[in-house]
Design a protein around this nucleic acid. Structure first.
Lengths: 341, 341
DNA sequence: GTCCGGTGTGAAAGCGCTCTCACGACCGGC
DNA sequence: GCCGGTCGTGAGAGCGCTTTCACACCGGAC
């Protein structure tokens, strides 16, 4: 009577060794692709492995190698809805593609709320994974600090708000926002409003800073009436736009800090009887799928998301290999001009 | 010089034992909450654990316990966009909630494309997880069969198409569709069309079957002109609806196999100048968030998704505990009547 | 013939943990 | 005062693997 009734347990190295007529060490060498094995021995082992349907026990292996060959993408967010963000889906896709011809496995960890964050932190501290890519959106999130302390290879997606020295990859949010605003200025617009993102998120903060910097450089004084804050959702964008129109009906352009919000803004503008870009020019951010299909198609700022993801993967794997230098990388954005501005 | 330069390795049981002045066995007992330890010994150990910041090594532990205390939610789908499905987000949320006060950890595994599916299969077969909840949408997906063979505790989300005997939980798609169609009949509608889902997905098949069953029971002969197939997206629903209107302009109701498609259908109907529910009554499926906010609000079929998720968790954990009986559970749906029908 | 370096192999140690088993201490009952 | 029965504890085996180390073997240089 074994512990787990009915569950067939996989054969061990020893059994394979016996069947192949070699030692455990040789089997191990074959399984791990060591070159120092005679071809005939190798064949015998391979045959035995196939016959017994041998699969190495990862627990035993990582007990000695100190590696798990697994990295985690952890998503720290109070709201599971973030999954719905196509942004996230793209990161997952690119990440698993980058890992496809590696030994590395990818697991996703969702940490919403304090309890789950603790659970994830414990999971990582225990050494279940060799490294983690952390997507943490809000400034009050404690997970980045906890994981940074855990001595585990770590790459952040997005610049950390507290300026701690960790490895991260981010888009040049400020630069992109500035370029977007400059594009509006170049189009002759002068009353340029903004729907900015939440100011406890780095993307919200940086994009707003870029907008202000562009205006300042053009010698235009900031006007609080021209600033409304949204929550990166379409509904939030629509509301913020309505607020702006109420406060400053004479605006001729608006920089919206995300495409979903921009779509909402377009709706509000349409409902108010204004034409885009005739009366009001609109620029979004992210180059999300909706940007191309909205009415009118959205001029927006594209982030090199795939490149950023590959970069994160790269930085992380290098850390896992023992290359310990901490790097920060900021990737340039690109203005995609469509019909809305 | 240790293997992984710079990475501080966690203390071991032995070091804790030495500091606490007890044996390794006693430390293990304390860490695992065994009652057979004298209070003073327990305190000494706890103190030592805290002082050394001891965390048990899961590889060593699972090498002997044969457990990993981790279950996987695997998402087998060619398209990572599925993440965007709020459906999925709800399952993740409920699942981690159910596991919150358990020892169990949850990891998500994305398997799109053949290579990744193989990788996931290997991951599971190696025994990285104690069990898996598998969401596989399409009939040609081989992962369900592979995992079923892997002898690992398994619960499927959704009835398997090939009728194999595995544990699964599903909503009563056929029953729900039938009830929806009967609701249309009860409202006096007689030319009842349907926008069905992909016929290689169990939800698509069953919902279509329910629609047909209701018509048949009412003595209405099936009419191929009244059937169009969508892909569960809003755009697909809009296209399918347009097709239906072209083929049968006289329809007075439509059962749409998902809410996003229903929203698309509403748009097409509006554009064709028809009123809902005046000219055409519409019933959707899923009770997604959009159903309540669409114009008009959608009458739809709600699945007890949270309950289903808890049920899956439950069935899986029971299997993990060694309770091996294979069960299938089909949960009743509920018609939510709003304005559209 | 001896010596050499290289090459493939096996014995064995040990990774950090759990858990059985044996043992001593202590209790109450006779 | 002796015996059976807890109860807490520690010694030690062993989980399945990697990896070091020593060794046997071989062909070529001298």
């Amino acid at each position: 009577m074994t512990t787990l009734a009915g569950r067939a347990s996989s054969p061990t190295l020893d059994e394979v060794a016996e069947l192949a007529g070699v030692s455990r060490a040789t089997v191990s060498r074959v399984v791990n692709g060591s070159p120092k094995v005679r071809p005939e021995a190798r064949r015998a082992v391979e045959e035995a492995v196939a016959r017994l349907r041998y699969v190495p026990n990862p627990a035993a292996r990582s007990l000695v190698t100190r590696r798990t060959d697994t990295i985690a993408l952890v998503l720290s967010e109070s709201d599971t809805q973030v999954f719905s963000d196509p942004f996230f889906a793209r990161v997952v896709r690119e990440l698993s593609a980058a890992l496809a011809d590696t030994e590395m496995n990818l697991v996703l960890l969702a940490a919403r709320g304090e309890r789950e964050q603790e659970k994830v932190a414990r999971y990582v501290r225990q050494g279940h994974v060799d490294g983690v890519i952390l997507m943490s959106l809000h400034s009050q999130d404690t997970l980045p600090a906890v994981l940074a302390e855990a001595q585990v290879p770590l790459v952040l997606s997005g610049r950390p708000l507290d300026g701690r020295t960790v490895c991260y990859v981010d888009a040049d949010n400020a630069g992109g926002a500035r370029e977007a605003t400059e594009h509006l200025l170049a189009g002759g617009r002068r009353r340029i409003a903004t729907v900015s993102g939440p100011q406890d998120m780095i993307a919200g903060i940086d994009r707003h800073a870029g907008y202000r910097a562009a205006l300042e450089a053009a010698g235009i004084a900031p006007d609080a009436d021209l600033v409304a804050t949204g929550d990166f959702t379409e509904a939030g964008g629509a509301r913020a736009m309505a607020l702006l129109l109420e406060r400053a009906p004479d605006i001729d352009a608006v920089f919206v800090a995300s495409d979903p919000m921009a779509v909402g803004a377009l709706r509000t503008l349409r409902e108010s009887g204004r034409s885009v870009p005739g009366d009001v020019a609109v620029v979004g951010f992210d180059d999300a799928a909706v940007a191309a299909t909205s009415d009118p198609p959205l001029t927006t700022v594209a982030q090199p998301l795939d490149e950023m993801t590959r970069l994160m993967t790269d930085l992380l794997l290098r850390q896992v290999e023992g290359d310990a230098e901490v790097q920060a990388r900021v990737c340039p954005t690109r203005l995609v001009v469509r019909a809305s501005a």
